[in-house]
Amino acid sequence: MAMRTAIARVRGLGSAKTGTEHWWMQRVTAVAMIPLTLWFVASMVSLAGANFETAYLWVASPAASVPMILLLLAGLWHGKLGLQVVVEDYIHAEGVKVAILMLLSLATVALGVAGVFAVCKISFGE
């Protein structure tokens, strides 16, 4: 039945308004996290028990600060998308759900900015 406008059919986003954006970005960030996770684990293992100076100089080096920022951005984004689905699945009270989803968005950005700021401060301070 042609109840929908032509532009709506072309966009193909349906009633959820965002189409497959959430699903797709979860996959994109997941693929990004494969090499970043392996790099992160290898780095943390080699940094085990490191003192301040060793850890500081490691984060300060571009070879570590750039992947660390990428890890923070891809990881927090991926985690936000995942937690959003958990909230949508289990929280059924509309007001509470919206409040938690908003808090999740704000916390994700706050953590991302804080983490990237910390890496930049270390890297530029060096």
């Binding site: 301040f52 850890a55 500081y56 984060v59 660390m68 923070l72 990881g75 927090l76 985690g79 995942g82 937690l83 958990v86 953590l111 804080a114 983490g115 700021f117 910390a118 890496v119 401060k121 270390i122 301070g125």
Partner: peptide, 20 residues
Amino acid sequence: TGVALSAGAVALVLWLLALA
């Protein structure tokens, strides 16, 4: 594990802030 790792991400940011 995904939910647990989100808590781990908070710990990582705190660790970086402490280092900074």
